[in-house]
Design a protein around this nucleic acid. Structure first.
Length: 582
RNA sequence: CGGGACGUAGCUCAGCCUGGCAGAGCGCCGGCUUUGGGAGCCGGAAGUCGCAGGUUCAAAUCCUGUCGUCCCGACCA
């Protein structure tokens, strides 16, 4: 591609609306332009990168035995009613009525395609002999993000590869899952991304039924913990904490329980200031409504509640903080003064509550807190639970190591679905004995755009993007320094043609611009290998090669240039491939 | 959905407090010079100051409303 005939609008200045590096650089390098909050046009450079990623994803899916098909984004809402997800998704689901003659049909734009694919398989698969099968598509998905952000990291419309496996039983599911998991590792490695596999909420199947693939990045939306000793990694909201379960005992020596007036102190911070104590000595008492009952959750003042853990500890379906009326009813005080002493509802305590001696807690009366609160004397516990968010330096649940905090961009998710959708949509097969069973499913998603954005976010320097060869929009950038110099242009044209006939993706900056301008733009768009043809070099019979990742350039005789580039690109490809697991 | 910020030329922004001719740099167009890290000089085009209403002799500027964008939080199989 000749730059003058392409469409690569670069920007020297940083757009005011972009805050994180990937967003700024993707705008400045001419990869994307915003259409509205949460929707972007992919310009030629950005789209080429997307397609490179798609090609890698496609080849690895096929290598893993998945079959490509293509489902419509437009689906009947009826299918979504059958699985109940039309309510579960709520406002995030893009759905609207369509008028067709005198009828009105209710449609959704798919945020994912379990319903459509399961309905398809329900109609086409009758026998165990047709299973297992895994299908996939690469397609535009729609989710009405209430708050799109971070450029293309969180948008309402995005490219996703979604795959679905159908099998006769858990064993076939596990095989498919492992194949997909391995394929994902190869995909992210081939794309040149650093990634972590993270344990995620496992749903109804339990065990190791779900993993997320995260690109570590300071601006990532997800907070994860990671153990460097054993490799355990998990979303903080899912992360287990390897704390020993403390024995519940009444302390041998303790202070008297006394009441302190604490007018207006409804937050941990205010209480710790007014009573001059560390937040870790305060018992934070949160009143939750879980399904239809009310329960108090005790946490150390410096810890954060993990609602998923609380919900699971109670075997509940829904959980939310209780409303002020309920809180007043069970504690006898307005919000902010609840405590475990004499509380009118069941109590659930985190492990770390057990070891606090002479704690401070709300007194269940307005503007008052207790000091000297102790287990056994002032309130009772039979057991304790893991109810809080993991934090840095928590003990690893799998080994002796400690957990480190990190942030990550979720680029992939594999999930064992089980029979949720096959049951709801009657996707059943007959076994050898003519007995009907629901198919056992798995689903596997990859955010194509997020791979590109994740790369931009993690691979750049002060001058611009730095692409790996594997997903770079172009592999080689040829720069004739002065297009008015016939000898320079003739040489550049020849090199450009020869490289293209070698099968390389070549961009030639044939614009009428000064050298410095072209160098700056070249660095900004981050093409891996730069070939400079200039008058000075030609006088010495050389052209100049420079990798975007290198400090210095190489001077190569003109007639060796093509062979050298071919070889260096091959070497680089081989080096990038070294990280790809078997 | 709660909190905050911003909206003036294609981009970055000044002007607003204290009402009185619509500005700068970059980019763009034409010309000349220049040609190895975002060139120089000369000339030029370009804005319904987000939109609507109000106050005023007079509004980019003050007031009210509204729309949009960004950030923090809630939400996000």
């Amino acid at each position: 591609m000749r730059w003058s005939q392409s469409f690569i609008p670069t920007m020297k200045e940083i757009p005011a609306d972009a805050e994180i590096p990937s967003h700024q650089l993707m705008l400045r390098a001419g990869l994307i332009r915003q259409v509205m909050a949460g929707a972007y046009t992919y310009l030629p450079l950005g789209w080429r990168a997307i397609r490179k990623v798609e090609a890698i994803v496609r080849s690895e899916m096929e290598r893993a035995g998945a079959i490509e098909l293509f489902m419509p984004a437009l689906c009947p809402a009826e299918l979504w009613e059958q699985t109940g997800r039309i309510d579960d998704y709520g406002n995030a689901l893009v759905n609207f009525p369509l008028v067709r003659g005198d009828r009105q049909i209710h449609v959704v734009l798919g945020p994912t395609h379990e319903e459509v694919v399961t309905d398809l398989m329900a109609r086409q698969i009758k026998s165990y002999k047709q299973l297992p099968i895994t299908v996939f598509q690469i397609q535009t998905k729609f989710r009405n993000e209430e708050r799109p952000r971070f450029g293309v990291l969180r948008t309402s419309e995005f490219q996703m590869k979604d795959a679905y496996s159908f099998g006769t039983d858990l064993e076939q599911l596990n095989v498919a899952y492992d194949q997909m998991f391995a394929a994902y590792c190869r995909i992210f490695a081939r794309c040149g991304l650093e990634y972590l596999t993270v344990e995620a909420e496992s749903g109804p199947i339990g065990g190791d039924a779900s993993h997320e693939f995260m690109v570590p990045a300071d601006n990532g939306e997800d907070e994860i913990v990671h153990c460097h000793s054993c490799g355990y990694a998990a979303n903080t909201e899912r992360a287990e904490i390897g704390r020993p379960v403390p024995a519940i005992a009444t302390p041998e020596t303790m202070a008297e329980l006394s009441t302190r007036q604490t007018p207006g102190t409804t937050s941990i911070e205010q209480v710790s200031q007014m009573l001059a104590c560390d937040p870790s000595r305060i018992i934070k008492t949160l009143i939750y409504s879980v399904d239809d009952s009310t329960v108090a959750v005790l946490l150390r003042g410096d810890h954060e509640a993990n609602q998923s853990k609380i919900r699971r500890a109670l075997n509940g379906d829904t959980i939310e903080l209780a409303d002020p009326a309920t809180i007043e009813q069970v504690s006898g005080a307005p919000v902010g003064f609840a405590g475990p002493v004499g509380l009118g509802c069941p109590i659930l305590a985190d492990h770390d509550i057990v070891t606090i001696v002479d704690a401070i807690s709300g007194a269940n009366q307005v503007d008052a807190h207790f000091t000297g609160v102790n287990i056994g004397r002032d309130f009772t516990l039979e057991t304790s639970h893991d109810l809080r968010m993991a934090i840095g330096d928590d003990p690893c649940p799998r080994c002796d190591g400690t957990l480190q905090l990190a942030r990550g961009i979720e680029v992939g998710h594999v999930f064992k679905l089980g029979t949720k959708y096959s049951t709801a949509l009657s996707a059943e097969y007959l076994d050898e004995k003519e007995k009907k069973h629901p198919m056992v499913m798995g689903c596997y998603g990859i955010g194509i755009n997020r791979i590109v954005a994740g790369m931009a976010e993690t691979s750049h320097d002060e001058n611009g993007l730095i692409w790996p060869l594997a997903i770079a929009p172009f592999e080689v950038l040829v720069i004739p320094l002065n297009i008015n110099d016939d000898q320079v242009m003739a040489t550049a044209d020849r090199i450009y043609d020869d490289l293209r006939s070698e099968g390389l993706d070549v961009l030639m900056d044939d614009r009428k611009a000064r050298p410095g301008f072209k160098f700056k733009d070249g660095d900004l768009i981050g093409i891996p290998l730069r070939v400079v043809i200039g008058g000075k070099g030609l006088a010495d019979g050389v052209v100049e090669l420079k990798w975007r990742t290198d400090e210095d350039s190489q001077r190569v005789p003109i007639d060796e240039a093509i062979a050298s580039i071919r070889q260096q690109v091959r070497d680089r490809q081989a080096a990038e491939a070294e990280t790809v697991p078997e």
